[in-house]
Write a protein that binds this DNA or RNA. Structure first.
Length: 423
RNA sequence: GGAGAGUUGUCCGAGAGGUCGAAGGUGCAGCACUCGAAAUGCUGUGUUCCCAAAAGGAACCUAGGGUUCGAAUCCCUAACUCUCCGCCA
């Protein structure tokens, strides 16, 4: 959520920033009028409440003095009704204002290049070159099916499209990748492992920005008004919602493995084969809570921490900075890490690392006590995949496939796999 | 799923229709005492909103409704926590 004061003081600046996303103004133009109206009604009702409070304090004194309070009480009854009426109006205005604000995305950071979509993303660096095969490489869904470690047909039988069954060494590979990533982040790096609930309430989904705008993308559990998490970002960021963290605790680094559930509404026909776009996939996530002044340095190090996974696995990748039009709703700046996928003949997103600045912190009310000023201030939140597990498995299968159809296990995973090759 | 108890400020805890933003303690900050520290004493110490700011005002005792001139206090609904029973990995 954007700061209403910022909109009030620098409307043109905020408008220009929001419009960098090339998708209109998201209702921002309604804000100044609603804000003015709110303050007008607020001033009026507060003045009435002031009179109500003052007179209410006088009544017991008058009664004690033995005076008749009937007339005053009657007048107060009228006032009370008027206040209720105005309070109702105020609540409506505030609801509309809040709904409008919740529907406005974050403003892109100054370094973000303007662009309508992913074609304007900028490549920043590359690790290794795409491998040249001496034979015709297969797609991971064929490799997995041929090795009998992935079963898409039976997954369709028990669930439907966009689900996968992992079998034998396939299941073990998925688990090995998860364990390898978590060990890297918690032992070699400084993240604290979290295993959160996979269902969350509406408040949590609103705190990180999935609601109210993107409800149709989520799986919903009506029985309890819960949502299946689309990413660990939701439970892990909201872990500290409504809290004031001691400054000394910052920065806070968390990592979490969770399954992720996405309805994939609106992506019918895209990436229908294989592990790339599923209703359920596993992911290891990195989340940071940091002091505002450090958040862009923290974004660099978080991205490096995610890249480390790919380096250890020896998978070719590149890092791009998303253009303003491709930026996620809550993000101020995002780096995508893209892994080379031979079957696609291009790089495919495997991690998305974002700085949300105070946008999520304001929604979820996550603050820290600034020791210098003594004031509670919003933290900056960041997160990134470290990494998407299914896509990592797909990339391993494709990049490490051999001419005989077998797949060599990357060195770093062998102690988790117990075998050097799947054949 | 059934029965009951609870949810107050950093934390603990009083409160039971008006003088309560809320006693007391604790934590924190400052001052005094001290060579220094501890102990002790004194003072201060929540958040948000409105107002250019100050002064001032409004709101907040889990959330949302209601009763009342007036609600932390009474009523209703919901969420959460705890205890007992049932069920269950």
């Amino acid at each position: 959520m954007l700061d209403i004061k910022r909109i009030r003081e620098d409307y043109e600046g905020v408008k220009a920033a929001v419009e960098k996303r090339c998708k209109g103004d998201f209702g921002l133009s309604k804000v100044p009028e609603l804000d003015a109206k709110r303050r007008e009604v607020l001033a009026e009702v507060e003045q009435m409440k002031n009179r109500q409070n003052t007179v209410s304090k006088e009544i017991p004194k008058l009664k004690k003095a033995g005076e008749d309070t009937t007339a005053i009480m009657a007048e107060m009854k009228t006032l009370s009704a008027e206040i209720k009426e105005l309070d109702g109006q105020l609540a409506e205005i505030e609801k509309e204002l809040k709904d409008t604000l919740l529907g406005i995305p974050n403003t892109p950071y100054k370094d973000v290049q303007i662009g309508e979509d992913d074609t304007q993303n900028v490549e920043l660096r590359k690790f290794e070159e795409p491998k040249e095969f001496t034979f015709e490489p297969k797609a991971h869904w064929d490799i997995g099916t041929d090795l009998d470690i992935l079963d898409f047909d039976r997954a369709a039988k028990i669930s439907g499209a966009r689900f996968t069954v992992y079998k034998g060494l396939g299941a073990r590979l998925e688990r090995a990748v998860i364990n390898f990533m978590l060990d890297l982040h918690t032992i070699d790096q400084d993240y604290v492992e979290i295993l959160p609930p996979f269902m969350v309430n509406r408040a949590a989904m609103t705190g990180t920005g999935q609601l109210p705008k993107f409800e149709e993308d989520m799986f919903y559990v009506p029985q309890k008004d819960f949502f299946l998490i689309p990413t660990a970002e939701v439970p892990v960021t909201n872990l500290r919602a409504q809290e004031i963290l001691p400054e000394a605790e910052l920065p806070v680094y968390y990592t979490a493995y969770t399954p992720c559930f996405r309805a994939e509404a609106g992506s019918a026909g895209r990436d229908t084969r294989g592990l790339i776009r599923q209703h359920q996939f596993q992911k290891v996530e990195l989340v940071k809570f940091v002091k505002p002044s450090t958040s862009y340095d923290e974004l660099e190090s978080l991205t490096n921490d995610a890249e480390e996974v790919l380096k250890c696995l020896g998978l070719p990748y590149r890092v791009v900075r998303l253009s303003s039009g491709d930026l996620g709703f809550s993000s101020a700046m995002t780096y995508d890490i893209e892994v080379w996928m031979p079957s696609y003949g291009r790089y495919v997103e495997i991690s998305s690392c974002s700085n949300f600045e105070d946008y999520q912190a304001r929604r979820a009310n996550i603050r820290y006590r600034n020791e210098e000023t003594g004031k509670a201030e919003f933290v900056h939140t960041l997160n990134g995949s470290g990494l998407a597990v299914g896509r990592t498995v797909a990339a391993i299968l494709e990049n490490y496939q051999q001419e005989d159809g077998s797949v060599v296990i990357p060195e770093a995973l062998r102690k988790y796999m117990g075998v050097d090759v799947i054949k």
